[in-house]
Amino acid sequence: MRIPSWISQHLAAVRAVVLFTVLTGLLYPLLILGVAQIPGLRDKADGSLVKANGQTVGSSLIGQSFTDADGNPVPKYFQSRPSASGYDPDATAASNLGPESMEDTLGDPALDPNSEEGNGSKNSLLTDVCSRSKAVGELEGVDGSRPYCTADGLGAVLRVFYSDGVTGKVTRAVSVNQACPATPFIAGYQGVPVECGKFGEDYSKGVLVPVRGSAPEQSAVPADAVTASGSSLDPHISVEYAELQAKRVAAARGVSVDKVTALIGEHTDGRALGFMGEPAVDVLALNLALDRM
Rank of each mutant, 00 (worst) to 15 (best):
G98D: 12
P75R: 00
G54I: 05
E100Y: 03
G71K: 05
P109L: 11
R81L: 08
L49E: 15
N96Q: 14
K44P: 04
K44F: 15
L97H: 08
E116L: 07
S85K: 00
D68M: 02
A93C: 06
G63N: 06
G47Y: 13
K44I: 12
A45W: 09
V74T: 10
D46A: 07
A84G: 01
R81V: 05
D88I: 01
A93S: 12
V57A: 05
E103S: 05
D46E: 13
P109A: 06
P89Y: 07
G71C: 05
N96Y: 14
A84E: 15
F78K: 01
A45S: 11
Y77I: 00
A91C: 05
V74N: 09
A93E: 10
S85G: 05
S85V: 04
G118W: 09
G107E: 11
N53D: 15
S101N: 04
A69V: 12
N72D: 14
T105I: 10
S59K: 06
G54L: 05
P113C: 08
G58P: 02
T105R: 09
K76T: 11
R81N: 13
P113H: 09
S59Q: 12
P109I: 10
Q64N: 07
A94W: 08
E103Q: 09
I62S: 00
D112T: 04
S48A: 08
A69Q: 12
D88G: 02
S101F: 07
T56N: 11
G98E: 13
M102D: 02
L106K: 02
G86D: 11
G71Q: 10
A69Y: 10
G63D: 10
A94S: 14
P99E: 14
D70A: 02
E116G: 00
D90Y: 03
D68C: 00
S101W: 04
T92H: 09
G107I: 09
T105M: 08
L111G: 06
A45L: 04
N114T: 12
D88Y: 04
T105E: 15
K44H: 13
E116Q: 08
